[in-house]
């Protein structure tokens, strides 16, 4: 019995450390394969160069168009997902009856389990033609289409985390507010949301980090043009889509190959920062509501 327990303990310890090992491995590879690009191009020219022509002669490795592609799509997706995600969390937590909640919550969670390629497909076949027709564009695959699809994809993350944050707000706060003659709306806006505020911001940051890292969908619906966009109606080529589209054709060990790894490294750092911020905020949130004792 005791031997069995010791064996189990070790097996699970190894499992737990395996993911740490993978993480370290990934980071090492990203740095090892990404950094050599700076033998070909300076950091500033890489980050702020306006042309991405990795297969031209001479090649140009300026990723500003890709960064801006990601920024536009992300901002657009945030504009879609935050109101819808937070709004549905508020609805679920404050207004929905037990029955409505029992139906709606699983539906929103199913949304999270749809593979991203399905979203991409939906975007190409349904949303893009619609956007093209409505705005009379030459092509429907553009920043707007990508924003809408990515925004919808981030709703479940934001909604379910924000709903958790709202439900952590102790009932006693609401009761105190009602007892002072506040109505539902006042209680929600003046007590519940401020108390859940940092939890809700955590949900938004994690949702955004999902949007920034999303690949398949963006590749399919963003249009793929490596230009600095000036409107939502232009096709864009976000960073993730660039890696996915070009990795197959970049010769191993070439400058192009290293450039793609360097883009991956930047993406990794950005999402890492988002996640650290989210963790810090949510820790403060738990302390504020006294959940960490």
């Amino acid at each position: 019995m005791r031997i069995k327990e010791t064996i189990y303990k070790w097996i699970f310890t190894i499992f737990a450390f395996a993911s740490l090992l993978f993480l370290v491995g990934i980071v090492v590879v990203l740095f090892k394969e990404g950094l050599p690009i700076f033998k070909h191009v300076k950091l500033v020219a890489f980050l702020f160069g306006k042309s991405w022509y990795p297969t031209y002669e001479p090649a140009e490795y300026g990723i500003l168009p890709l960064i801006m592609g990601s920024v536009w799509v992300t901002v657009g997706a945030v504009l879609v997902s935050v109101p819808l995600g937070v709004g549905s969390a508020l609805y679920l937590d404050e207004l929905a009856s037990y029955k409505q909640k029992a139906i709606l919550k699983p539906i929103i969670e199913i949304l999270a389990s749809i593979p991203s390629i399905v979203f991409g497909f939906f975007g190409m076949v349904i949303v893009a033609p619609l956007i093209q027709r409505i705005f009379k564009l030459p092509v429907g695959l553009c920043a707007l289409t990508a924003s809408i699809i990515l925004g919808v994809m981030a709703i479940p993350t934001i909604c379910s985390l924000a709903e958790d944050a709202l439900s952590y707000v102790p009932r006693s706060f609401r009761e105190a507010s009602f007892a002072l003659g506040a109505n539902r709306w006042q209680t929600l806006t003046k007590v519940v949301v401020p108390a859940a505020g940092s939890g809700v911001s955590t949900s938004i940051i994690l949702g955004v980090s999902r949007i920034v890292g999303e690949t398949m969908t963006v590749l399919m619906v963003s249009g793929g043009a490596a230009m600095i966009p000036v409107s939502f109606f232009q096709p864009v080529r976000p960073m993730t889509a660039t890696i996915a589209a070009e990795m197959g054709e970049a010769a191993m060990g070439s400058a192009h190959y290293h450039a793609l790894f360097a883009i991956g490294l930047i993406l990794f750092l950005v999402t890492l920062v988002f996640n650290i911020i989210a963790e810090l905020i949510s820790r403060r949130f738990r302390i504020k509501l006294g959940l960490n004792r």
Binding site: S172, F173, E175, A176, A179, V191, P194, A195, K288, L289
Partner: peptide, 11 residues
């Protein structure tokens, strides 16, 4: 007005 069992000031 009402005062509750556990002090419940708002944060």
């Amino acid at each position: 007005g009402m005062v509750f069992q556990k002090p419940n000031p708002f944060p």
